[in-house]
């Protein structure tokens, strides 16, 4: 038995929303924002823990220059290098939003180019993080070296894991979108991934300032 579409269904917010919602908002987008709100608390807890314990170490190495047993130890942070990583991640946010703008104009080729550019910039950021972690490890900073090492690696490691997941989703979306011939009707999918990617970017904006630049 077939039902004729009602006027409400015809005016659903997006073409692939499937059904009318009480909020008038697509459920997937609502869920993504709820997820991001919960992620705020997740990263808030990690950043708070880092700020609390970063100077509580009873052994070197330290984030900035420090003295232990009369010996001066040079700080580990490499601000010019991390600044470049930050710039790379910021630019990836620009390319992500350009991917969304492309699919909203029905430009599938543009979508593919910008999705790949975003993934490439994400991988570059991850390579920089791997380089930094290796350099810190060679200086003696490990997960259990001191409280600074524990909180730093957990915080930045979880952020890196989020970036890695984002890169995997970007590459997957590139393949699916090009293979299935996505049109502007699929723009919500790109927008949802974009929300995740921009969130990862704003978390790094906070980490860069609170962890790297502010050293007291």
């Amino acid at each position: 038995m077939q039902h004729a579409p009602t006027a409400d269904v015809q005016h659903a917010p997006t073409i692939d929303a499937g059904h009318e919602t009480s909020t008038g908002i697509d459920n997937r987008k609502l869920l993504m924002w709820l997820f991001l709100a919960s992620e705020c608390l997740f990263f808030g807890g990690l950043i708070g823990t880092y700020l609390l314990y970063r100077n509580s170490g009873v052994a070197p190495p330290c984030p900035q220059d420090c003295v232990f047993d009369g010996v001066m130890y040079q700080g580990l942070f490499d601000i010019p290098f991390t600044s470049i990583s930050t710039f790379v991640l910021l630019m990836s946010s620009v390319s992500m939003v350009l991917a969304l703008a492309a699919i909203q104009r029905n430009d599938r080729r543009g979508l593919g180019i910008w999705l790949l550019a975003t993934a490439l910039l994400g991988v570059t950021f991850l390579a920089g993080q791997a380089f930094e972690f290796t350099a810190f490890y060679n200086e003696g900073l490990t997960l259990n070296a001191n409280l600074f090492g524990t909180t730093f690696f957990v915080l930045t490691g979880f952020h890196g894991a989020h970036v890695s997941v984002g890169v995997l989703m970007l590459v997957s979306m590139y393949i699916v979108s090009q293979r299935n011939g996505w049109t502007k009707e699929h723009s919500l999918n790109v927008e949802l991934l974009g929300l995740y990617w921009h969130f990862v970017d704003i978390v790094w904006i906070v980490i860069f300032t609170l962890v790297y630049l502010i050293q007291t």
Binding site: P80, F81, V88, S95, A117, L121, F131
Partner: peptide
């Protein structure tokens, strides 16, 4: 090791 940043800056400039 800072030289690693040169290709990254070039990449960002290229994208821009």
């Amino acid at each position: 090791a800072y030289l690693l940043g040169v290709p990254l800056v070039a990449l960002g400039a290229l994208v821009l």
